[in-house]
Structures are given as structure tokens and as C-alpha cells.
Design a protein around this nucleic acid. Structure first.
Lengths: 182, 182
DNA sequence: AATAAACATGTATACATTGACATGTTCTCT
DNA sequence: AGAGAACATGTCAATGTATACATGTTTATT
């Protein structure tokens, strides 16, 4: 696996970053498909440094506050590129607690079932809108070789995924309401 | 979270099962949204038994081969129903290694990028077809209160998800090929 | 001047998950 | 009669992840 390793190396390919900045990326922009807390990132950076895949320079803010700005090494870069080229089996479909609930929804009365579905729908809808807002930053498809192209297609994928979940929930609500009067 | 606990209790709500049978479910039918190995299931069943949520009877096959058939207790049932009723925040969007790759695809030449996309597409397409095959078992929507209704909507969701991933990959291929001649 | 938010880095504990180790029985097919 | 698949249950070690613990500085706001 070791995907975190490559997620970090990939970011450092773009430009040098501190652990703090990487953690921020993993909790905002990238969060649509990857995330990690700083408690995972700092030890990982330490290890990558020991393996010679990254170096760092210490920067001082103000009087004494230190931060380590990590730079990818040549070895780190080639490791990353190698990983990026690998053909991959599609991953196991992700665990989904809500689908697990719906799988067992025969144990719920129709009212509760619809309530749960509509609650999820509402939340996914909000999320979709916030993604669409972000998407407005791209009035056109960015150049295919820029970093922004990667950002763009992944964001587009997140929107499509979100719309699809909502469509599924709508279908479920529809099925549940069908002949509900009988 | 302890979702595994409720996944198991939910199955046992339907009818008594052995650990082996539960493991099979988690690696076939349910695998579209949940899975676990037997190495996780057996200890979990042991604990559920200690908590008084399940009981078991020992069955003998042949001469000596023992299997434990687990039954849900009243406490187990009410615990499960309580969990099933809970409103939930939507879960974090799942990690996705392929999207991570595509996020960094600016580092790949166009040929490799399209190759990776088409490879994923092919695999997802196969998966979609096998889901559709399973779906043929449902010529109509099962009764809303049957267990099969849960199976049905979750399978429908899996198909929609799969179609959506393929649509996204097609978009990505389209964007990548656009003005590729320049 | 005080407070809160953001910057900055780390460790520790608990839990979840995977894959291997470990052992044996029963059934089905050839 | 033998082989292989399926049945059946468990443990262990390593890895991955989440949450909390721990400590402090700098910047922006009031």
C-alpha cells in the first residue's frame, strides 16, 4: 500500500512544503480522495527523510518558531514517477455505513426509512453545492500538463460522484414511497 | 465506529448463521459496501457473545467437525434496531488511490495517462457487467419490507456507482485526448 | 493588553484491518 | 483410494488510522 508516502511525494513534486502545509492540503483540497492527520504526516516525513527521499531546510518565523520545509530528492522523484506509472487493479469498493444501513432497512418502518434517506440527501446536496462553488474557479479546462488539470478532473469526479449518490437516494426514496398508500 | 458489530448483528437478525457463513457474505454479496475477513469476524463474534448480544449452539457435521451457529439475543436485536434508527452525518469521502494518481497525472505523458485510464475503465466495465448479471435476478422491485428490498436497492446503488465511475473516466479520457494532435 | 486563531511539530494510545500462520474435517469428483 | 475444494475455527504480527495528549510561537482582532 504505502499510498500516503506517494501522496506526500506527489505534493512535494509540485513544490517544497512544510508538514503543516501538507496536513492542510490533506484536510481541504485533497480531502475529496485522500486525507491524513498531522499525527500520521510528521512520522511519515521523518521516515521519508531517513530513506533519502526528501530533505528539509529549517526556516524561522519571528524569533524562534521553526518549521521544516521539505524538498523531494532525485530518488524521491524517481520513486514517485515509478509508482505513478504502475497499472493497478481497481480497488475494493469502499465501505459505506449508510449503504449498510439501507441494506438492513427492511427492519425500519417506512417513515423512518424515508427520514433517514432525506437526511442523507440534504447533507449530500449541501456538499455538492460547495463542490460546485469551487468548480466555478475553472471557467475552462486547464492545460492538460498543468497541475491544475489534475485538480480539475478530480474535482469534476467528486461532483459527478456526489450527483450520483443523490440520484441513488432519490431512487430509494421513490421506491419507498411507491404505493405507500396501500 | 464499531460498524462491523452492527453488520454482523444485522445479518443475524435475518436468521442464525455460523462465523464461516458470515465471512462468506462479507466476501460476496455484501462486498459492495462492506467486507471483513474471518480473522476479524471470529474475534468479534466472541466478543458479541461475551456482551450477551448473541448466543450460539454447536452443530456437528459428520463425526466431529464443530460449527457454532450464532443467534441474536433480544438485547442484540434492540441494540441493532437502535443503531439502525440513528441519523448520521455523511461519511468522509472514501480514499481513492486511482484518483490520487490522476490528481498527479500532470507528471505523466499523455500516452501513459490514457493507458492507465483505459485500463481502469476496462476493469470497471467488467465489474459493471457482473453486477448487471446479478441484477437480472430482480425482474421487479421486491416488496418494500422484505430483506430482498435492501439487497435490491444496494445492488442498484452499486450499478449506478459503477456507471458513474466509467462516465468520469470517459470524461477524463476525452479531456486528455482533446487537441492531442497539437 | 488580552484573547483567539492560526502556525508549527511532535508522541502515545487505542482501534481497525490485512495477511499470514495454524490446524484440522468433510464432501465431491475422478 | 486419492486429490482437491470447501467447510470450519481460531491466533498473531504488522500496518494503517483516529483521537487525544503535549507544547509552544506568531499573527490578527478587539
Amino acid at each position: 500500500m504505502k499510498s500516503l508516502k506517494y501522496a506526500i511525494l506527489g505534493l512535494l513534486c509540485r513544490h517544497p512544503m512544510t508538514g503543516y502545509e501538507i496536513a492542510k492540503e490533506f484536510n481541504f483540497e485533497l480531502a475529496e480522495f485522500w486525507y491524513a492527520n498531522h499525527s500520521q504526516i510528521y512520522p511519515e516525513l521523518k521516515q521519508l527523510n531517513e530513506e533519502g527521499l526528501v530533505n528539509y531546510d529549517i526556516e524561522i518565523s519571528g524569533e524562534i518558531l521553526e518549521s521544516k520545509r521539505y524538498t523531494i530528492t532525485e530518488k524521491g522523484h524517481s520513486d514517485f514517477i515509478k509508482w505513478l506509472h504502475k497499472d493497478e487493479k481497481i480497488q475494493k469498493t469502499p465501505k459505506d455505513v449508510f449503504r449498510l444501513r439501507m441494506y438492513f432497512s427492511g427492519n425500519l418502518d417506512m417513515e423512518t426509512r424515508i427520514h433517514l434517506l432525506e437526511n442523507q440527501r440534504m447533507q449530500h446536496y449541501k456538499r455538492l453545492n460547495s463542490l460546485k462553488k469551487t468548480f466555478e474557479q475553472y471557467p475552462e479546462v486547464p492545460p492538460r500538463n498543468s497541475d491544475r488539470f489534475g485538480d480539475f478532473i478530480v474535482l469534476r469526479g467528486a461532483i459527478m460522484r456526489q450527483e450520483n449518490i443523490i440520484a441513488w437516494i432519490d431512487e430509494c426514496i421513490g421506491y419507498s414511497k411507491e404505493d405507500a398508500g396501500e
